[in-house]
Nucleic acid binder design. Structure first.
Length: 315
DNA sequence: AACCGAATCAACCGCTGTTTC
DNA sequence: GGAAACAGCGGTTGATTCGGT
């Protein structure tokens, strides 16, 4: 258990802050500022590490902190933002003046999750949702990589007993200004030929009429889609360059969203309560207990060598 | 009043990205 | 270019509080 370099000192205190410590920190920062946090403890006369001081100041002591219960408006905003950016608490917090990422994170983990589960339990159809196992995350690939996949790798694959054709899923940021003409062409084809409902809804994979239409699937999304909610995504790096894999399986009004480092957490949520057309989760890593790596420019060659169907029925 | 489980939330941990040397 | 230091973030822990029995 390595500590932060500034915390390696023997006499560093841990645990709750006393009022005296708070007072020392406030007095120091209000008079000197906090140029370098690692220097703050010594200069302020605190036996804490700089990291701890920073956290205490940011989360509890800074003057613009807003305490107390979240308002319904704040709650709604948190839900909407979480729907878009996932567990990017700092990003969500930047939209709620005076609220901290830690506070929002705690709030979400306790109250909002509970509320959503309560709503789901009241929804009859969600009491026994169909269970699908997604075998691979969508792949973020350049147009050239997609070409290679379609020409070389795809024909080698045998038919899936449940879904006769392999079904790689590619995602593009159609709002990216850096899209090449080839990418734009692929996006255009995808949006012309594909109904996103067929892309996402696993039930449709069993409808022979639509099989050819959905494979492979391209999902174009736009980081500029909504000026209120999608524009902030641009500065988080979500787009063709900073894209993260995500998984979503929809079934009528419910969606199974997977999240967590090893896809260990899965929940059904009622999508009707959300206002935006796309509900998705950014996953740092996905895969059902496998060593699936998030596709990045460095590992994408490995990530796209095989194409199981994106959804594999397990019951 | 005492106990216990659930809920809450402050703080820590470990990791990643950025900056500096 | 590489290492070290640092800032910042999200996940997790654990102490405290709350509520039910």
């Amino acid at each position: 258990m390595g500590h932060h370099s500034c915390c390696n000192q023997q006499k560093v205190k841990r645990g709750l802050w006393s009022p005296e410590e708070d007072e020392k920190l406030i007095r120091y920062i209000t008079t000197h500022g906090y140029g370098c946090w690692s220097e703050v403890p010594e200069k302020a006369g605190l036996q804490r590490c700089g990291k701890s001081c920073r956290l205490r100041w940011i989360n509890y002591l800074r003057p613009d902190i807003r305490r107390g219960r979240f308002t319904p408006e704040e709650e709604k905003l948190i839900i909407n933002l979480h729907e878009i950016v996932g567990n990017r608490w700092a990003h969500i917090a930047s939209h709620l003046p005076g609220r901290t990422d830690n506070e929002i994170k705690n709030y979400w983990n306790s109250w909002i999750k509970k509320k959503i589960h309560k709503q789901i339990s009241r929804t009859p159809q969600s009491s026994s949702p169909p269970v699908f196992e997604h075998a691979q995350p969508p792949v973020f690939a350049t147009a050239d990589q997609v070409d290679t996949i379609l020409q070389h790798d795809l024909p080698k694959l045998g038919p899936d007993p449940m879904f006769p054709s392999p079904c790689p899923l590619f995602m593009f940021d159609s709002g990216s200004t850096s899209s090449s003409s080839k990418e734009e062409q692929l996006i255009q084809e995808a949006t012309n030929n594909l109904d996103s409902d067929y892309i996402w809804n696993p039930n449709h994979h069993q409808q022979a009429d639509h099989r050819q239409a959905i494979m492979p699937a391209f999902l174009a999304f736009s980081s500029c889609m909504d000026s209120n909610y999608f524009t902030p995504l641009a500065d988080t790096g979500i787009g063709s360059a900073g894209a993260q894999p995500c998984c979503m399986v929809e079934d009528g009004d419910t969606s199974r969203r997977s999240f967590g480092k090893n896809d260990q957490q899965t929940e059904w949520v009622d999508t009707r309560q959300y206002s935006s057309p796309l509900i998705w989760e950014h996953l740092p890593n996905v895969g059902m207990g496998s060593e699936a790596l998030p596709p990045t420019p460095s590992n994408i060659d490995n990530a796209v060598t095989t194409f199981p169907s994106p959804f594999t029925r397990i019951n």
